[in-house]
Amino acid sequence: MVTTATPVQVVYKRPASLSDTPTHYCPGCTHGIAHRLIAEVMDEMNIRERAIGVAPVGCSVFAYNYFTCDFVEAAHGRAPAMATGIKRVLPDRVVFTYQGDGDMASIGMSEIVHAAGRGENITVIFINNAIYGMTGGQMAPTSLPGQKTTSSPTGRDVESMGFPMKMAELLSQLEGAGYVVRRSLHDPKNIRMAKKAIRLAFETQIRGLGFSMVELLSTCNTNWGVSVLEAMQYLKDHMLPVYPIGDYKVSPALENLRV
């Protein structure tokens, strides 16, 4: 007779690439989901020990506290330049930046575009939640038309405040880009897709196929002024139509890669 003890399988446990430090993020903030996915991918690919992260300025300024890989902290918007410096000196390391929309699509626009244009072999995780989180909810370059923020109190008027920056579309136009996609973090299916994209982005870097970026549509329920669950719904209803999920640039060398 077989043993009566039923075998138990661990379906999910906290990835080793995440540190023990609890995050400072608001409850339900999708930064945490993005962090977790990066850590899970680092575990799966066994790259933690040769990964070097570059933290931004914004809510994720303390990202370096939450991973067990080496990290540096960049000036606002300059993470792609800093990552470039590291990667050029240490080409066999896996170098990634983690940047929000203000950091990357506003003050750091030059650095990100040129890193992509050079085909810099770095990976960029871009958190687009359409608002400045850390400074308390000001208009971001990615804020939606009509979106009310503390610096666009009557809503973003595109006539005077411009249109949302579509970073995935923009960067995908550059020949140096090897993998540029947009994903979303609003439900389990999309989170699974996002994780796969992060994996492919790191694979792009490791294969030397050029610049890789995963734009992750994210929430900021605190500064949007809604509940955690309402924020997910808002993302689905209002961000997805402006920022369609999709593969904007995939190097042909990645097409047959199964992860």
Binding site: Y12, L18, T23, T30, G32, I33, H35, D187, I191, R192
Partner: peptide
């Protein structure tokens, strides 16, 4: 666990 932002 897929949804959890804190890997808790």
């Amino acid at each position: 666990a897929i949804m959890c932002p804190e890997a808790a």
